[in-house]
Every structure is written in structure tokens, then in C-alpha cells.
Design a protein around this nucleic acid. Sequence first.
DNA 1: TTGTAAGCGTTATCAC
DNA 2: GTGATAACGCTTACAA
Lengths: 347, 347
Amino acid sequence: MSNNIVNLKQLSQYLGLSQTTVSRALNGFPEVSERTRKKVQEAAEKLNYRPSPSASSLATGKAKIIGHVVPVSEHRMINPHFSDFLAGASDTYARAGYDLLIRAATPEQEADIYRDFVSRNRVDGVVVHGPMVDESRIELLKSIGLPFVVHGRAGGEEHSYSWLDVDNRSAIEKLTNYLIDLGHRRIALVNGLESMNFAHRRRLGYEAALQQHGIEIDPALISSADMNEPYGYEATMEKLALDNPPTAFVYSSILSAMGGMRAANMHSLRPGKDISLATFDDQLSFLQSKNGASPPPYMTNVSSSIQEAGRRVGELLIAQIADPKAPPVCELWKTNLVVGESTGRLA
Amino acid sequence: MSNNIVNLKQLSQYLGLSQTTVSRALNGFPEVSERTRKKVQEAAEKLNYRPSPSASSLATGKAKIIGHVVPVSEHRMINPHFSDFLAGASDTYARAGYDLLIRAATPEQEADIYRDFVSRNRVDGVVVHGPMVDESRIELLKSIGLPFVVHGRAGGEEHSYSWLDVDNRSAIEKLTNYLIDLGHRRIALVNGLESMNFAHRRRLGYEAALQQHGIEIDPALISSADMNEPYGYEATMEKLALDNPPTAFVYSSILSAMGGMRAANMHSLRPGKDISLATFDDQLSFLQSKNGASPPPYMTNVSSSIQEAGRRVGELLIAQIADPKAPPVCELWKTNLVVGESTGRLA
DNA sequence: TTGTAAGCGTTATCAC
DNA sequence: GTGATAACGCTTACAA
């Protein structure tokens, strides 16, 4: 139960073996005899030996760390979506013996940080968050040879790198179609920032649904911004104040949908009766009840667990680090439509 | 603009200087002449030199990393509160040249992880999250000599270690007193987990306010659990179903307060008229509107920015790492009562 | 003001 | 199967 620090040298002296043998025994090399290995492992346990990460990192070039660069622009990446993603990812990392490293950076610094990461292997790989429509990080990472997995996708050659994405386009198309089927014609889209790839794709899904039914696209019914509660509230209020207000709303995030609920409330519009609200739901944990029911406002939604996404992205990345020559893995996750109480037939 | 990796040796050869001099020049040692320093800096810039973290860590014993251990128990630490704290902390770290490392751990693993951290300096210090009423981590960290700052406090000798806390007790006392002043006598407390220090203190504040006014404490009006939305909803619904239901509610988090709003809605109780709702507000960023108005439901609240707390805790920790012998710093942040539209005089 | 050389704790390359 | 020994890239006495 000692807290004393024992290094490889001391351990090997204690055992009367060379450092080499001890190192090999501990790292599972096949050539060392089982008897020796056992002795070594017991002694390591007893003396509380722990290899130094910096030393092994220096010797192997592996850091056993996964990096996450988070932009600290006006549109912060650190939000409930991010933290749920991290919860999933960090769990995967911990199981695989990796640590999770976060570096905050302004957009201008970002490229430089990747170079920094790779040049002296501070991390073995990175997760790319929030890919834009016009994304430059992917080419950069490829060119500097830093393993990465994208949460989401960018345009361009989709199969030239690993990513995991939900089918944003079809998800929102499904949601919009459902509202149209209920008789709605004036449908608003309270979207995320459309400079981001996911939001762009959602916009396309929304437009596709309308076009399939010959409904004209009205720019006044569409907004695009950082997905938070006040934005959902304000965008909804604004649209409800139009001469010809929408009868249904599609939200890109449960956060803005909550703002939408508040706005509906403000106007004494009963969701599911006087107004229809539907949302994309990332299954954020702070909104999940123990029994795993649908999101709190019991809203009609298409959903996908962002925490599971984090877990899976972590796996993909670790696999890629283990075998960098393996072909890229691309996963497109489908969503299911869940009908709740927040939508209803147009009166 | 080359991506090539240049190490100290190559840089020094290029300059025709020794590694020592180059290292000293780069690390701001006073003895090196300004002319040399300048030349070195320019060459470093030009050749895109970046010191290897593992190498300097190995040589100095400093990792330039701050650790955050997050419990992955049933009561997850990774939630919107945590992510906002991180947003603040990571910003401080980035400025000071530190990285942020997260390790997920079950409660049983936690002690072992701290030993692991310190034994081979994977990190230079840690932030202790969510101190319990009966907290063991603090003694452990002291004994193993790993610098730490607690976000919150534990019991015991409060001035023997550094912490930053909000005055939970007085905050909730203030809130409760305000409700009492409005004429309420049946006041519910929808608290966090009372095995956690902050929630325990809030409970004391609540009880103190009631006792000052000779109001009996009714256990049926108090609940304690993980602070999320569904919990707020369920706890509120439950209490509203009592024979003698409360007329006012105090929430420990805006998340559960939102659930409370939903429950009130469900009962067609108008906040501020038929029912009074008040909350502790951590100023979570996803609920902040651009103009920085009060939290979305315009609720009566006592508030403190958890993001600012993260920033400050980061500063305290970095200062402590720089000077481990300095006396502990303890900061108790006060909160202000902000009256919103969710509370009103008892009818 | 600058340089030499030892050391930080591993892993990897050879021998044996 | 095991053991010297040389990296890995930096910092830091100690010299000059």
C-alpha cells in the first residue's frame, strides 16, 4: 500500500533481472517464459510499479491520448451536445487505456494546434467536431498524417476518411413529411448554423419534403443560428408574429425546441392542438428520465443518441490508431420517427 | 511553412550553437544575450521548431496538463453544469499553456487514478468535482502530494486546502426567505443529491429560513436527486398531488426548474400567479440569450456563473502548481437575488 | 555568455 | 529466453 514511486530500474534490480526482460514481461512479449512473466507481474503489483507515460511516449512515439480541439469562437462548441458526446467517448477511451485531452482554440489557432499535436505527438489522434460545409481541417489532417475521425461529415470525397454521422437529411425530411401529412403547409425550420454541414443537410431534407408536395419554400420561415434555448424562443416568436404564421415548427435541437415550447406557451398555443412542434433529438442525458421515455416535452421527434455516437467515434479512432493503414470506416446512422403529443392534424 | 519536425539538436546545429544555449534562449533564461535569443527565436520560428512534451515532461517532471477525473457512476458528472465549468477552465488552461485531460472512472477506481496521475506525473494537478458531504479524495490528494483545487467544499478543515464555492447556504436561504415574504408557507425544495456537499448546504439554508419564521419542516416537501429535467418534473408533479400541496417551489438547478415549469404547465398553473417557482441558476450557456438577460423562463433566481467558476478554479490551480508552498486560497462567491416573473404573492 | 555531459524512464536493436 | 546498450528529445548541474 505504499505510495512510493518505483521505476523500471528499481523493479528489475529487485527481481534480479534486466530492465529489458521486465519491460518485455510487462508488455506481453511472447518470448518471455511464463514463470518469469508471473514473477515480474507479481513484483510489479507488490511494489506498485507504474510506467511513466512521458518516458514510454518518448520511446514509442505513442501518447495514449486522444485530442479534442474545441473552438472558442462566439459559437461555442462546449455545450450539452458536446458534453454528452464526451461522456460516451471518454468511456471508450478509459476502457482502452487512453486519456482524453481538450484544447480550447480560436478558429485561427486550430490548424496550428493540429500541427503542434502531431509534430511532437502530444496525442495519437483527434476527433473533428462540427464539420463545416466548407471544411479545411480534413485536408490538413490528412496531409500531416494525424489519425482522425469526424463526428459528422464534410463535403468532398466522403470515403477518403473515417466519419460517423446521422442521416440528417432524411431525418428532417421524415419529420417534415410527417407534418405535411398532418395537413400543415406553413412549416417553419428553426435550424442550426447552416455554415455547418449537419445543418446544411437538414435544410436540404426540409426543402426536399416541401418540394415533393409542391409547397413553396418561404425564407421567412427559416432561421439558422447556434442551437440554444433563447434562439428557439426568439425564432419562434418572430415567426408567430408574421402575417401568415406557420402552423408547424421543425427544430434542429431539443434545446431550441424547448425555447419553442416556451414561445408557444407565451402565445397560449397548445402544442399538438393549436400548433405543432417537432424536433431532432440527440437524447441529451439531462433530459432523459430514468425509464428512458421520450424527451421531456413528449415531443414528436427523430432521434439518435449523441452519447452513443461519442462511444462509437472513440472506437473507430482507436482502431485507426492501432492500424493506420486500414481503410476508412464510414457509418451513417438512421433515425426513427417517434410521434409524441406535440404535433396534431391541422385544424 | 514546412511540416517537418525539427528537434532541438537540429535547431542548434542549424544555428551553430549548443543545445543548452538554444534551450535557454527559448525558455527565457536571463543569462543569454539578447542578440542570441533573437537569432534563436527567429530560427525556431523559421524551422517550425516545437519542443516535445514527453521529452520536456520527462526532463522536468512537469506535464503541463491538468487532470479532471469524472465519475461514471449512475449519477453522471458529465452534464451541462460540467461542460460549462470546463469551458471556463479550458480557456484558462489554454492561455497558460496547459492542456486539459479527462479520465472517466468508476468511484472505486478514482483513488487509484490519482495515484496513477501523481506517480508518474501524467498531470500537474487536478480539479476535484462534486465534493460529497463525506469526502475522502481531499485527504488522499494531500497525502500523495498532488496539487488540487476543489470546486465546492467538503467538511472538515476548510482552510487546509484550496477551494472555490458559492455560498449555497445563504443563496437558498435568501430565495426561501423571499418566498416567505411573499406569504408562502408551504414551500417545496427540489434539491440535488444531498450526499453532495453543495446540496446539503442548500438544505440547511432552506431549513434556516423556515425556522426563522417558525414554519415547520415537512419532509414530504423535500426531495433530493440528480438534478435534471425529468426529476424536476416528477418531483413537482408528486408534490402538487399532495393533499396539502406547496404553493411555492425552490429548485437547486435550472434544469430541474425547467421540469418544474413543465409540471406547472401540465396543471395549468401560471407561474407567478397560481404558483411560485424560484431557482438556483448556474448561468448555463445554452440558456443565455445574447443580451445576457435572466434565464429563459424569466424565473426568480439566485445565480452564479459556473463558467466563471471554472475559469477561476483553473487560475487557482495553476498558481498553486507554480508555487506549491503558497498557502491555500479559499473563495466563497456570493449570489444576488434576481426577482423574475415566476414568483408572486400568495393569493 | 556559452558549452559539455549526465540524466529523466522507457522501448528497441542487437547480441548471446 | 535473457541481457547490454543505444536511442527518444529535452533540461540542468557543472565547467569554461
